[in-house]
């Protein structure tokens, strides 16, 4: 028995409404994240050679971690590599503008800091930079959220946010997790 045209049209409309609904929910979630959680696109492009990252300059092992420069600017430099972060834990002060800078020598990674607006891709050849202010203290989880290989699921680090009076840089301006 042939199905009447009316039934076909009604079924089409129903499914069209469902797809429009799904797309709308996703768009609303994106807009909400952008406005309420301050998730922004990157605002600048900065290149770096992934092959020689470890050989000198900003992302050598000795220069990684949190550092306060002379003008009081707090910067944390972190390398994402298969399948770990270097360092695996960084200390940052609460209620103060901080800058996170990431680079990778191997493949595409990504990070987010749970419960905050820090969320960026880390692409070989580029420096990913995020400015933020942490308002909650405690150990925040920073997992890799971009599949980077078989060990991806174990790739995570800790961002230790401490009250400003417990944030004590040493003579060189450095603050490390195990030094506390």
């Amino acid at each position: 028995m042939p199905i009447s045209e009316e039934i076909i049209v009604r079924s089409e409309l129903r499914w069209a409404a469902i797809s429009v609904g799904v797309v709308s929910v996703i768009m609303i979630a994106l807009i909400y994240a952008g406005l309420v959680h301050h998730i922004n696109p990157p605002s600048n492009i900065e290149r770096i050679d992934p092959k020689t990252l470890h050989l000198g300059g900003e992302f050598t092992e000795a220069n990684l971690g949190t550092r306060v420069s002379g003008d009081g600017q707090v910067t944390s430099r972190i390398v994402a590599t298969q399948f770990t972060f270097q360092p695996r834990c960084v200390v940052l002060p609460a209620n103060r503008r901080v800058t996170l800078r990431f680079a990778t020598p191997d493949v595409i990674h990504g990070i987010l800091v749970s419960g905050t607006n820090v969320n960026t891709m880390i692409v070989p050849g580029y420096v990913s930079q995020v400015h933020t202010v942490f308002t909650r203290t405690g150990d925040l989880l920073m997992p890799c959220h971009e599949y980077c290989g078989l060990g991806h699921s174990e790739m995570s680090a800790t961002v230790r946010v401490v009250p400003p009076d417990e944030f004590k840089p040493d003579a060189e301006g450095r603050v490390a997790c195990d030094a506390r």
Binding site: H54, L55, G56, G57, E58, T60, E61, A62, N63, R67
Partner: peptide
Amino acid sequence: TTNAKAQP
């Protein structure tokens, strides 16, 4: 960058 010499 750090003033310490890079030790890759």
